[in-house]
Simulated scan of single mutants.
Amino acid sequence: MQSLALIENWPVPTAAAAVVRADGTLLGAHGPTGHRFPLASVTKPLAAYAALVAYEEGAIELDEPAGPEGSTVRHLLAHTSGLAFDEHRVTAAPGTRRLYSNAGFEVLGDHVAKATDIPFAEYARQAVLEPLGMTSTTLDGSPAKDGVSTVDDLVRFAAEVQAPRLLDPRTVAEAMTVQYAGTKGVLPGYGHQNPNDWGLGFEIRDSKSPHWTGSSSSARTFGHFGQSGTFLWIDPVAGVACAALADRAFGPWAVEAWPAFTDAVLAELRR
């Protein structure tokens, strides 16, 4: 795919990108796709998927108590537990505001670890990374932001999410469905959104503007971006997913470059 070469124009030392179809077919790749990059918050979809495996195994329930009083596993996955961004401090009642929270995902990781009696990073390796052949990916540290991976591995994950083998497709459909519809909140880097739609560990594009995906991305597009200069989106209407990793922190360069890149990828696919 010629559009992937646009990453060469990004003002970053290193970048890699790839596009994969729902059936797992790699449509194109560019750059060092085996290079390991810090994922920052692109860690969250991987952690969420591991938590959903724990749910299907019966170790946890989505609506069981977890986190602050009144909060559940579902609240933690959907950033509506009321926990602050990076502090284990309650700032709102569960279900009332979309408070994007690293602390919430750390509580989630601890909850899964306690329920399974396995450290979360090891559980994620056994439940998700190893079965998908994601041998270059680690989730040591915070399940909110400390993952390290490659484009090659994220393509494997994106193929799984589009055509699930590790989870019941109905569970994945739930993960990409808006939780606590109409909830307002801040999308990091893009300001206040009303509503700020989110699924179970995946952000949902809907009608958000501005946004890190493209203007031609479907409203059903879901995924995540990371402050380390990373993103993964899955567009069910286009039937493809795209992973792009770079080693420059998110900033104005990404706000300008990423949407144009995504629009070019989608335009090439339509030709």
Rank of each mutant, 00 (worst) to 15 (best):
K114G: 15
E256D: 15
D140T: 14
R21D: 10
D153P: 13
V186D: 04
N194V: 15
A241P: 06
D263H: 06
L266S: 11
T25M: 06
T91C: 06
T80L: 13
A47K: 01
H35V: 08
W253A: 15
P210L: 01
G239H: 07
F231Q: 15
L154S: 07
A50P: 05
D86E: 15
G147P: 03
W253V: 12
H79S: 09
T230V: 05
A254E: 04
G95V: 07
L77H: 10
V178F: 07
A84E: 13
D263T: 10
I118Q: 15
S209F: 01
G191D: 03
A29E: 15
T177W: 02
G226F: 00
T43S: 13
S142G: 07
F222T: 10
N102G: 10
S3C: 14
Y55E: 06
L52W: 02
P11F: 02
S207L: 14
N9Q: 14
T138L: 08
R156H: 08
E122G: 08
C242W: 00
S209I: 01
P169L: 12
P259L: 05
E61A: 14
L62Y: 07
R165C: 14
A181H: 05
P259N: 04
V112M: 09
A40T: 12
V178R: 11
G201F: 02
L232M: 08
A5F: 06
S217G: 03
